[in-house]
Amino acid sequence: MVSLPVVLAVAAVLFGIGLYGALGQTNTIMVIMGVELMLGAAMLNVVGFLRYSHPDATSGAFFVLVVMTLMAVEAAVGFALVISAFRHSRTAEVDDLTELKG
């Protein structure tokens, strides 16, 4: 009953939710949370393939490992950036951090 398409579909929904958050939230931290969800969806995809298509693909597992690590790292760097931006302009809202505006 649980088959590859199901897993992929669930991952797709999770990805959509994460995208909704990344696009729709004003606070930078919330955007980062959305990105975390999207990465989580990707990992779910790989695990699904691992289970239902290529069980012996250790490289897949390694991929998930790396993505997990990078999730954390990215969050950390994101927080540091938010702190720095907050010190500079007392706001962490995405709408206000528009200095790269062309």
Binding site: A11, V13, F15, Y20
Partner: peptide
């Protein structure tokens, strides 16, 4: 946008 992407991915998956 999120809904569109979800539907597209799900369609591909299924």
């Amino acid at each position: 946008v999120a809904a569109a992407v979800t539907v597209a991915l799900a369609a591909v998956a299924v």
